[in-house]
Structures are given as structure tokens and as C-alpha cells.
């Protein structure tokens, strides 16, 4: 499998070091030094995953994430030097699938990429939850007959929840299965994704009827 990774990072030394280290991990990297360059290349070439630094001159990282998300469900990992909660949440809200904080090891990044690109589980039957129909084979979700566009991560999240058939899925299980996190259950990562998912599949995202919160433990699908 040859995975094409695009690294958007304005600091040339970081770009080089990360490219070298990621190549060692088995991911050859294409580099872009600015948001404009990245968006331009992404229009003409196809990549499997994009790593975006948030602080870019000109078109900044958040804008890149937003633009890419509006174009499709290409996996995006935010690579940020800012560890503040608000930056993290902004990146995830903009549509990123995951985020890592500098200084990061290429091995960690590689694990994240692998988790994001992991293939969907072996063929499962279509699942119906109320108005919602999930077809794991085709990766499609319909709500009342109308197609709902989910990113790959949102889809996997929904599938993990649906697969439990109404049983509680803990936050840790979700983080582990969807993002490949060992521990460090990052609440924000999961919270933002659940929020995004609800916005797309719930009739009223503030009063969810499909993805229910189980306080203290995790989530479950209304069975």
C-alpha cells in the first residue's frame, strides 16, 4: 500500500525533519510550505491524508482545513504548536479528523495516520436506526431516504456505536477503535466529533434522539 501524505508546514526545518522521519515509518511525504500551495496541489493531485500546521502565513491552517472539508472527506490531521483547548476545538470544529501537539514524534503521527486510514471492518449488514439507514459496505448513510455526507471518521464513529446495538460504548473504546488512541482519552476530540455527527444525523442536535450520552461513561445508540 502506498499512502500519499501531504505535509503543510511553513517551518522548513520541521518539514524536512518530519518528512524524513515519516518516510522511515513508511509514509513518503509531499511537502507544501503555505496554505495556498497546499490548496493548489490538493486541487490537482490526490492524497490519502493531509497534515496541517495551524499557524501558516497567508491562508492559515484553519482556513485550509475548512476548505478541504468543504471539498470532501479527505482525512486531515492538525499538527499544532498551540495546546490550548480553544485552538484544539477550533481545529476540530473546522473539520479536522484528529490533532497532535508539537513536539510530536513521527512514530506517533504514523500511528494516527494508520488509524485514520484503517479499512472498514468486514462486510456488515445494513443497519436501520429510526429514520437512519447505514450501509457499511458502500459507506453510505441515509436519513429519511436522503443521503447524509459524513466524513470517514464520523462514519466510523457512527458505525462503532451502531455496531454495539444499543449497548453503551465507553469513551475509551471509541477513542481506541476510531482513532487508535492508547489512552489519554482526549475528551475534546470525541466531544467535537460527537457534536459534528449529531449535527448531521439528528433532527434536533441539542436534543439528540439517536446518539445518546451516557453520563460518566460514554455513548449509546437508541435501540
Amino acid at each position: 500500500m502506498c499512502v500519499r501524505v501531504l505535509l503543510v508546514e511553513d517551518d522548513e526545518r520541521i518539514r524536512q525533519a518530519l518528512s524524513l522521519a515519516l518516510s522511515d515509518e513508511g509514509f513518503p511525504v509531499d511537502e507544501a510550505g503555505s496554505g495556498e500551495e497546499a490548496l493548489h496541489r490538493l486541487e490537482t493531485e490526490s492524497f490519502d491524508v493531509v497534515l496541517v500546521d495551524l499557524t501558516l502565513p497567508g491562508v492559515d491552517g484553519l482556513e485550509v482545513v475548512r476548505t478541504l472539508r468543504s471539498r470532501g472527506d479527505l482525512p486531515i490531521i492538525v499538527v499544532s504548536a498551540r495546546a490550548d483547548a480553544c485552538d484544539t476545538i477550533a481545529g476540530l470544529e473546522a473539520g479536522a479528523d484528529d490533532y497532535v501537539t508539537k513536539p510530536l514524534m513521527a512514530s506517533v503521527l504514523a500511528a494516527r495516520i494508520r488509524a485514520l486510514l484503517r479499512r472498514r471492518g468486514p462486510g456488515r449488514e445494513a443497519v436501520r436506526i429510526g429514520e437512519l439507514e447505514i450501509r457499511p459496505q458502500e459507506g453510505l448513510v441515509h436519513r429519511a431516504g436522503e443521503r447524509v455526507h459524513l466524513t470517514r471518521t464520523e462514519f466510523r464513529l457512527l458505525l462503532e456505536l451502531a455496531g454495539a446495538g444499543g449497548r453503551i460504548v465507553t469513551r475509551e473504546q471509541l477513542l481506541q477503535k476510531v482513532w487508535g488512541y492508547d489512552y489519554f482519552g482526549d475528551t475534546r476530540l470525541l466531544d467535537v466529533h460527537i457534536r459534528r455527527l449529531r449535527r448531521k444525523i439528528e433532527a434536533n442536535p441539542d436534543d439528540p434522539e439517536v446518539v445518546l450520552t451516557v453520563r460518566g461513561t460514554g455513548y449509546r445508540i437508541r435501540s
Partner: peptide, 24 residues
């Protein structure tokens, strides 16, 4: 504090990853 954080994190990213390449 945020600037310092940023200024320290960036070179460290380069260093740990260059280090990882060397260690291999």
C-alpha cells in the same frame, strides 16, 4: 507564554524527529 510555548515546540519537533531518523 503562548509565544514561548510555540517557539520552544517548533525546534523541538525538528530535533526529536531528526533524532529519530538518526537513531534508526
Amino acid at each position: 507564554a503562548s509565544d514561548v510555548s510555540h517557539e520552544l515546540r517548533s525546534p523541538l519537533t525538528t530535533m526529536v524527529n531528526a533524532g529519530a531518523v538518526l537513531r534508526r
